[in-house]
Design a protein around this nucleic acid. Structure first.
Lengths: 335, 335
DNA sequence: ACATGATCGTGAATCGATTCAAGCTACGCT
DNA sequence: AGCGTAGCTTGAATCGATTCACGATCATGT
């Protein structure tokens, strides 16, 4: 209720409000004497700057909006953590929203963030088209696409080279001699899953093999339960694949556990490669071979881009970052 | 840049700004004719209310602050999701901060939220004492302790009855005939871990057994890797326990996997009970018996309490919610 | 026809920080 | 001493929505 204002600080220090504001925002403009006098008053009163008023005046808020499909998936949780930590260091607040893959929830989140006048928006869009995003940018916020490729040259973006990821995984399996490979994935309308598939095909081409080598099994979501379901579907395939590449570690772990329970020998009967390298991968029932994604770096880079786009007084060059994945070979893929 | 303001809407509709504001906030106060006229103008201009200005005027923001120790742990991720979904329905923004168990980061987050003038604060405190919290409340924000018991009667709180949880788990193990039980936990300075321990002892007393039955193994954090480490410590114990109760499923799963790799028969040689019932528990290498926590409900209830505390114009009665856990018996505990 | 209310709409004041043109000092130089 | 200037400080205007005392309008009853 009783928020001490800059005015009270000014009174206490015997200076004008303008000077207090200068101490806060451009200390160089103020003489050393004033600076300590004001600082003392601030400390004595326990003054905390009202960010709301500042935002109203400068028209842009020291806040980032983050819209992710899902915050339970450890992949996105890590991205969020990267964003949050980078922002916290810069003293920025992060408003986190999850769209749950639903267009309507996504739109609601966008409106919320628009009302809140966030300075930057980090989004993994599910339905929001480039026009919608451009609208937001026009209203003053920097926009960065996260984990999706840009749809227009003026959209900033940070993503992982999933194409390379898919290629890495499948090449590795081919090198182990596998010639019947299943690709277990969440729906292919999500770009990363499509890219991994294309990467897989590229690996086949490079090896001079037919596309038939890879069979795609689509599950609705990337959870261990659906991984388990994929395992039973896999086992009913004729002829049965000898290797599986999963679009997420959570899928891979669910699948691995179900296979083990069905007395399938991993990796002897069926080899597995996951994606993401979540912490659990290393200490799964069998340490999981996986394509590591630099996901904290993804969040961090996204936050930095948004910050630069917001800070810049005009001349901001849009950038597209593509981070490389890395194959981590453990025990589910090498006999 | 070009934010349409209420003033432009007023001009377009040929009414005063006061009327537009009334349409937005107390439609009942305005005649039907005005209401549609204003609404039309709003739609035509694509007006989005500037929440910042509103906040400045009313002194309280339509925003909740959430400070959790960690957003990677699926337990807290689910709590956060509960908070976020409940808030989104009410049109509130949620600023998420993680303290990473560090006093300094927690304090930084508190100051951030104070500057942002959030209307409510949901916090699982690591170092912030009741006085600090009372300070914040005095400055106008509703405060709800999450997953911690209140330290003063005027703090709202929502938590799980971990005492009952510990008791449930250990009673179950005792009923299975176990007489040497290990409690694998993150440090006991976290209240839930201490409570589970006390619950375990209560189960022993109820069965007329000595406290020696339970040996406590403390690991620094609740991750599968530390679960694996706990497994090796467990195996070196003499005499070796025949059952383990873990303070988190992540610990339990790491432990389970390591035991299986060491050719220990679970549950025959060692039984395991986890805590939380994360999704992975059901499809672990062996479906995990665990004490389910109503964690989304926790987040939901916390958000609702904070909302009510913020909404209320004075008369708000502080409430303490205690949610019951539930034992989910799967395959790691029954032969 | 007039008084009495009730119902609506108006617009100026307000929230707190920022900004910038203008004013003030003090110092150096001639 | 006089003048110019660099360096500080000041305070009023401003951002956009809300609020509330006041004024306008209209219906009803006598």
């Amino acid at each position: 209720m009783t928020q001490t204002s800059i005015r009270e600080v000014a009174a206490r220090a015997g200076v004008s409000v303008g000077t207090v504001s200068n101490v806060l925002n451009r200390p160089a403009r103020v003489s050393a004497k004033m600076r300590v006098r004001v600082q003392t008053a601030i400390d004595e009163l326990g003054f905390v700057r009202n960010e709301t008023a500042r935002q109203l005046r400068v028209g842009r808020s020291r806040t980032l909006g983050l819209i992710l499909p899902d915050t339970i998936d450890p992949f996105y949780a890590d991205v969020a953590r990267g964003v949050e930590e980078t922002s916290a260091e810069a003293g920025l607040a992060v408003i986190v929203c999850s769209s749950g893959q639903a267009a309507e929830r996504e739109e609601r989140a966008l409106e919320l963030l628009e009302r809140q006048q966030v300075g930057g928006l980090l989004i993994t869009p599910v339905a929001a088209g480039p026009e919608r995003v451009a609208m937001l940018r026009r209203s003053g916020m920097g926009v960065v696409l996260v984990d999706r490729r840009p749809r227009r040259p003026d959209e900033c973006s940070v993503r992982v080279d999933y194409l390379a990821g898919g290629e890495l995984a499948v090449r590795h399996l081919l090198e182990q001699g596998h010639r019947r490979i299943a690709y277990v994935t969440a729906p292919l309308d999500a770009e990363p899953n499509r890219d991994r598939h294309r990467g897989a095909l590229r690996a086949l081409r490079a090896a001079g093999l037919s596309e038939d080598v890879v069979t795609t099994i689509v599950e609705p979501r990337q959870t261990p339960s659906f991984g388990a379901r994929a395992a039973t579907r896999l086992l009913s395939l004729e002829p049965r694949p000898t290797a599986v590449f999963c679009s997420s570690d959570l899928l891979a772990i669910g699948l691995l556990n179900r296979l083990l329970r069905s007395r399938v020998k991993v990796p002897h009967d069926i080899a597995i490669v996951g994606s993401d390298d979540i912490e659990l991968a290393a200490c799964a029932a069998l340490p999981l071979t996986t394509v590591a994604q630099p996901r904290a770096a993804l969040g961090q880079a996204a936050a930095e881009l948004a910050l630069s786009e917001a800070d810049d007084t005009g001349a901001h060059q849009h950038r597209h970052l593509v981070l490389p994945p890395e194959l981590v070979i453990r025990e589910t893929s090498e006999v």
